[in-house]
């Protein structure tokens, strides 16, 4: 029971990394499948396809960043498993949820938008910039939740309760 706060905090870090990573992996895979279809027919479009494929991968990165920051802040990476109160542990778990949940769903949504954009690259390559912009719009919400998660983690670890 003494380390339960730390367990909750690590659970938060794990959720942020796992859910965001899972969403990005599925989305990048989806766009990759669609991209492979275009490359099969026209390999010269690889560059445009690659940009669209990279887009939904950022959520996984955000999840990793959140988890890394949290693990640094609670000194797990340095091997110091000092006690965290259960309240603080739960607060840190809650702080990780925005990027974990929104990261997962926004990655899937962005993957779908990017895969649809692959169709634009296939038929109207000169318009691919527009499809990239449309897919990138989804990123906004992942970035907003990343900010919330990061700010919360920083503040919670700094204050004592």
């Amino acid at each position: 029971m003494a380390n339960l706060g730390t367990v909750f905090a690590i659970l938060g870090a794990a959720l942020a990394a796992i859910l965001s990573g899972l969403g990005s992996a599925r989305a990048v895979g989806l766009v990759g499948e669609a991209g492979a279809g275009v490359i099969t027919e026209d390999p010269s479009k690889f560059g445009k396809v690659l940009i669209l494929q990279i887009l939904p991968g950022t959520q996984g990165l955000y999840g990793f960043l959140t988890a890394f920051l949290l693990l640094v802040k609670i000194n797990v990476l340095s091997g110091d498993f000092s006690d965290l109160s259960i309240k603080k542990g739960l607060a840190l778990l809650a702080a990780c949820l925005p990027i974990a949940i929104v990261g997962y769903f926004s990655a899937i949504a962005q993957g779908r938008a990017a895969a649809a954009g692959i169709g634009v690259v296939a038929k109207r390559p000169e318009q691919s910039g527009k499809s990239i912009t449309m897919a990138a719009m989804v990123e906004t919400y992942a970035v907003l939740t990343l900010l919330i998660s990061l700010l919360s983690i920083v503040r919670i670890t700094d204050i004592a309760f």
Binding site: L30, E33, G37, V38, T40, E41, D42, I118, G119
Partner: peptide, 18 residues
């Protein structure tokens, strides 16, 4: 699953140009 259709649809879109 949807992934396989994504590949097929992308190839179809390219060939629609023909």
């Amino acid at each position: 699953n949807e992934l396989h259709f994504a590949y097929a649809v992308a190839r179809i879109r390219c060939n629609e140009l023909n």
